[in-house]
Simulated scan of single mutants.
Amino acid sequence: MIVIPNTWFDEKVQEEAATTEQTAALKAYLEDDIEAEEAGILLTADVHQATLADTTSAEEINEELCKLWGFFIDVIADWPSEHIKVANLLDAISKLPHVDRTGRDSLDRFMDATGTVRASELWQDLPRFWNSFSDFWHSSAGWPYSRPESSVEKAANNEWTNLNSFAAIVFMGGPFADMTLLGDWGCYVIKKATASDYEPIGVHIPSAAVHADASNFAEGVTKEQAYTQVLLQAEGLFDGQRNWVCNLANAASLLWHAYKSLPHPSNQVNWAGFYTLDPQATTSKRQLVLGPFQGKVACQSIAFGKGVCGTAAETQITQLVPDVEKFPGHIACDGDSKSEIVVPIVVGGGEAKKLVAIIDVDCADFNGFDDVDKKYLEQLAELLGGSSDW
C-alpha cells in the first residue's frame, strides 16, 4: 500500500494549501490511526469555528471552504490509491452535526432532491466541494484531455485521469452513488462524466485510470466497494486491449489484491485466477486448461463436468461452494482450499453461446463466498467476455 510521504504534506503547509493541523489529521486518517469522523472534525475545525461567528460573512466562509476542498482535490489528483478513503472521509464530513445559519447569508443556493431551491447546509451538502472539483476538472490542466484523440493522450495527464477515476468511484459505487443531483451544476457535470455515452467528453471515465496504482486497495473498505474498484480498474485496463491473456492476467492481479485488503474471510483467499477452454481438446472430450492466476501452482487441465470448475464449465452456471469437501467429485488442487466460487465466462447468444473460460477463486476457510461475490464476479465475467478476443 502506497504511503503519502511527509514531504508532500510539508509542501502543502508551505504552499498554505492546508494547515499543519489539517495535514496531521489527514495523514493520521490515511494511516488508520484515527477514524473518518474524527478526521473530519479536525479537518473542518477552522471553517466550523468561522461559521459560528456572527461577524463572519458567507463570502469569507466560502473562501475557507474552497481552500479546504482544494486540499482534498490535491490529494485526489496526486494519490489515486487513497480515492476510496477520501470518498469515505467526505461522506463522514457530510454527516457532521448541522450548523444553524438561520438569518445569516446563504453559503450557496441549489435545488435539492425534492425540487426545492434552498440554501446549502453545513455539512450535509458539502457546500462548494463539487463545484470546486468541477472547476478543477475543467481547468487548463485537465480540459485539453477531455477530448483525447488516442489512448496515449488519455493517460498523458495524471491529474486528469485521477480526477476522473475518483468521479467514477464515488458516483458509480461509492458513498455518493445514490445521490440525486438536480440543481448542483458541479455535481451534475462530474456525475455525467462517468456515463460511457456522454458525447461531449467522448471518454469512458474508467479508461483513464490505467497504471500500477490500479492494484492498490484501501483497507477498511466494504466488499462492494472493493469489487466496484476491481470493475472500474479492469474496464480501464481493458480499454484498447483485447488480448485475453493480458486481460485475464490483470484481472487476476486486481482480484488478488482486492481480497487481501478485505477482512475475514475474504482475506483468506488462497487462489484467484482463470481456466480457459482448451483449443486442442476434441468436441467429445472438452476440457479447461490453466490460465493466468495468483496463488500456488495449480492443476493444468480439468475435464468438463469434473469438480467445481468442470461443473461450472459444463452447465455454464456459477458454482458457489461453502465446503468443497461436500461437492461431488471435487478436485483438490490445493489441500488448503475449503470453499470456492467458479463463474463461467461465455460469449455469444442463443445457439452461438459458447463458454470460453471460467473465473476460479478459492478460500482457505469455509463459507468464504456469498451472493455479493457472485454478483460482482458475474459482472466481471461479462466484462471479460465482451472485452477480449477469444
Rank of each mutant, 00 (worst) to 15 (best):
K85T: 01
Q316A: 11
T7G: 03
A352W: 09
T55I: 11
N247A: 14
G329Y: 08
L126M: 10
V289M: 15
S284Q: 13
P265N: 15
D213A: 14
D91M: 06
G142N: 14
I34Q: 08
A226C: 07
I61F: 05
L231M: 07
D360V: 06
C246G: 13
I331N: 00
P97E: 11
G183F: 12
W185P: 12
Q319V: 02
D32W: 07
L43T: 00
E351V: 10
D125C: 04
V13G: 01
G386Q: 12
V343A: 01
N162G: 10
I4N: 04
G350V: 08
M111H: 00
I345L: 13
I359A: 01
A381D: 04
M172Y: 11
A167V: 03
V152Q: 12
G329E: 11
S387R: 14
W69S: 00
K285F: 03
E149M: 14
T282L: 10
D197K: 12
A25R: 01
A113I: 15
E351Y: 08
H138D: 15
P5G: 00
G40M: 04
Y376M: 04
V203W: 09
Y145W: 12
L384V: 09
A226T: 02
E382P: 03
T116E: 14
V203M: 09
I34C: 09
P127F: 09
L248D: 03
F72W: 06
A272D: 00
L231D: 02
H138R: 10
G305N: 04
